[in-house]
Amino acid sequence: MSYRDPRDPRDQDPRDQGTARYEAGYSPQSRAYSQPTDRYQQQYGDGQYGDQQYRDPRDNPAQYNAAQYNAAQSDPRYAGSASYGKQPKQRQRPSINAGLYAGGVVMTGVVTGLAAWLVAWIIRAIAQRVNEAGNLGVWNPLAQDEYWFAITGFLCALAGGALWYVLYLTTPSPNQFYRWIVGLLIAAAVIIPLVLSAQISTGIGTAVVHLVIGLPVLSLIPAMGEKSIQR
């Protein structure tokens, strides 16, 4: 194959912009070389294709009818600009099913009350057996009766449910704060009877019942809250 100079007059085509620049009198503004052919005009418009900018129809929906605008929404060419002109949505915390959560808190109170009543009854039954034998003296393990501890356990569960709900609305991590608060209250409820009771048996029995009341409130209330969140 022989080499041919691109400036060879035989290869110069006035319609070819690649060879037109080698002709004498060529100018980029020359109309002879800047105007496209009729077929080019029919296909690409009035010679403005090279200067036409790629525009997103959603930038100005008023210039397009509803069908074109809806078609542009699903056009993959505009996928990168789907969020153009829109404000980012703020992250919202999931809501709680109030009825489901209230039912869980009430049942937690029932479980706590029954557990407190059962443990108090067992401690009193053991103390009565010891008192009847008379070998270890007279024990008075509980400062109150079993029903008082049952009601106290139920009310503590309701208070724990209200506390968790308030922490959920006002803190970023309600479970951690709830466990810390309730854990400290349980420790105080166990230690105070041991220190302030006149009889050591009464202090031990009351501390055990307080511990039994606190454990369901500590573990069940956060679980009820997590199960009641609508994600």
Rank of each mutant, 00 (worst) to 15 (best):
I229R: 15
Q43V: 12
K227C: 00
W164S: 00
Q17F: 12
Y69D: 13
I96E: 00
F154I: 10
V106E: 00
W121H: 11
A157I: 09
L167D: 05
D8I: 03
G225V: 01
Y101F: 10
Y40W: 11
Q43L: 14
A198M: 11
N140P: 04
W121R: 14
D56M: 02
G104M: 04
D56L: 01
P88I: 04
V166K: 05
A189C: 09
V190Y: 08
Q92W: 01
A133D: 14
V208F: 06
Q176G: 00
N65Y: 04
A150M: 14
A32K: 15
N65D: 15
D51H: 01
D51G: 05
I204Y: 15
M1Y: 15
P88D: 09
R4N: 09
Y147R: 09
Q230R: 14
V182W: 05
V208Q: 06
I186W: 11
A98D: 02
Q90I: 07
T202F: 02
S81H: 05
N135S: 13
G134T: 15
I213A: 13
D56H: 00
V106C: 01
D56A: 00
Y84I: 01
I221K: 00
A72E: 05
A157G: 02
P174L: 02
I213M: 14
S74F: 07
Q144K: 09
D11L: 15
M224E: 05
T112Y: 09
E146H: 12
R124T: 01
A207G: 11
G25S: 03
N60R: 11
W180G: 12
G25Q: 02
I191L: 15
V208H: 08
N131I: 00
L185E: 13
A20D: 04
Q35A: 14
N60A: 07
A82R: 11
L114T: 02
D16E: 08
Y168L: 05
S74I: 03
G104F: 05
H210Y: 13
P222E: 04
I181S: 14
I192L: 15
D8R: 09
Q199E: 08
D38Q: 14
R91M: 03
R10F: 13
S95N: 14
R124V: 01
N65R: 11
R179E: 09
G99M: 06
V195W: 10
Q35G: 05
L118Y: 08
P88H: 08
D51K: 10
G109I: 00
P193G: 07
G153H: 11
A133Y: 06
P76M: 04
A159L: 12
S81C: 00
G18H: 12
A116L: 14
G99I: 13
V111D: 04
